[in-house]
Simulated assay, not measured.
Amino acid sequence: MKKLKLHGFNNLTKNLSFNIYDICYTITEAHRKEYIAYIDEAYNATRLTQILTDVSKIIGANILNIAYQDYDPQGASVTMLIAEEPVEPTGGTQTEAPGPLPESVVGHLDKSHITVHTYPESHPHNGISTFRADIDVSTCGVISPLKALNFLLHTFESDIVTIDYRVRGFTRDVSGKKHFIDHSIQSIQNYLSKDTLKAFEMIDVNVYQENIFHTKMLLKEFELNNYLFGTGEDALTAQDAKMIKERLRREMLEIFYGRNFVAQAELI
C-alpha cells in the first residue's frame, strides 16, 4: 500500500467503543448473589488492568498511567493513558483483517487512552442477571484500534456485542490537503476472526460519508445449560425450562434491538 506523506504528526483520532453483554438465569436469590460475586471476581480491576495491558501491547503502545478501582457493591473501572512506541509500524496495520490473538502489532500513537467499565446487574423479579462491559480504545496515529477487537472479543464471554468505530478530525499531507480518514474500511466485520463471524448474527449500520461504522452481534447458539447459574437443565421441569428459555431469549433480543417488547408476538 502506498504510504501517505504527512505534514507533521498524524492527527486523526480513531475511536473504538463497544459493549459486551453476558446473560445468565439465576433461580434463587442466593444464586443471583453468587453470580454477581463470581463476575466481580472474574473481572475485577486487577484482571481488567491485565487485559488492557495486553491490548496496549497488541497496538504497540507505551503505558503512561493507570487508574483502577473496584466498586461496592459491584463493578470495576480501569483507565489507561498510552503513547507511541519509538518503533516504525510494520506493514499491513491498516488492512481490513482480524487483529492478533494476541501477537504484537506496532504503530505510532499519542494522546491516546484505553478504558473499561463493568456493570453486573440483575432483574428484580424474573431471575435474569446480566454482565455488561463497556470498552473504549482511542488512538491518534497510523493504526486503527480495531486491531485489538479480535483479542478483546475472545477475552470476554459474550452473548450480545454492540460496536462503534469512528474516525474524527483530519490530518494534512505535505501539500496541505486535508485527509479525514487514512485507511479503507467497508465494515467492522472484516476485522473479526472466522470463528466469531460464524458464531454470531450481525447487523451493520454504517455512515460512510461521516466515517461512522456500527455493528451489532447476537450469539446464534442457544444451549440452556450455558445460561443457568447454580443449577442445570436436568433439574428443571419441561414447563420451567420453556419459561426460562423465553425469558432469556426476550432479554437478549431486547438488548440486541435496543427496545422493550410488549407482546410475545414481537419476539418471533
Score class of each variant (00 low, 15 high):
Thr46Leu: 11
Ala199Pro: 04
Leu197Tyr: 03
His117Leu: 10
Lys177Phe: 04
Gly141Asp: 12
Thr237Cys: 12
Leu197Lys: 12
Leu101His: 03
Phe213Arg: 03
Gly258Leu: 06
Lys216Pro: 01
Gly91Ser: 07
Arg166Cys: 04
Thr115Asp: 15
Phe229Met: 09
Tyr191Cys: 00
Val174Cys: 06
Ile185Gly: 06
Tyr68His: 11
Gln94Lys: 11
Asn19Cys: 06
Gly8Phe: 05
Ile203Phe: 07
Asn150Trp: 07
His113Asp: 13
Glu41Cys: 03
Met252Ile: 06
Cys140Tyr: 09
Asp134Cys: 06
Tyr119Asp: 15
Leu12Lys: 13
Gly91Asp: 10
Glu223Val: 13
Phe256Gln: 10
Ala133Leu: 06
Ile114Gly: 00
Pro100Cys: 03
Pro124Thr: 07
Glu246Phe: 05
Ile63Val: 11
Leu4Gln: 12
Pro98Gln: 00
Ala235Gln: 14
Ala241Arg: 12
Ile128Glu: 13
Thr155Lys: 12
Arg47His: 05
Gln186Val: 02
Leu267Trp: 14
Thr28Arg: 04
Glu233His: 10
Val105Thr: 12
Thr93Ser: 00
Ala263Cys: 04
Glu34Thr: 02
Tyr21Leu: 00
Ile160Gly: 04
Asn226Leu: 01
Glu201Leu: 03
Tyr165Leu: 01
Met202Asn: 13
Val106Thr: 05
Lys5Trp: 08
Glu29Arg: 02
Leu52Pro: 03
Thr237Phe: 09
Asn44Met: 04
His7Gly: 02
Ser187Arg: 02
Asp40Ala: 10
Ile135Phe: 05
Leu236Thr: 09
Ala42Phe: 06
Thr93Met: 00
Ile58Phe: 02
Ile23Cys: 07
Pro145Gln: 09
Ile135Thr: 07
Asp182Pro: 03
Tyr165Thr: 01
Ile27Asn: 11
Val106Ser: 05
Thr93Trp: 00
Val207Phe: 13
Asn226Gln: 08
Tyr119Ala: 14
Val161Arg: 12
Ser184Tyr: 09
Asn19Pro: 02
Glu266His: 11
Leu236Ser: 11
Lys178Arg: 15
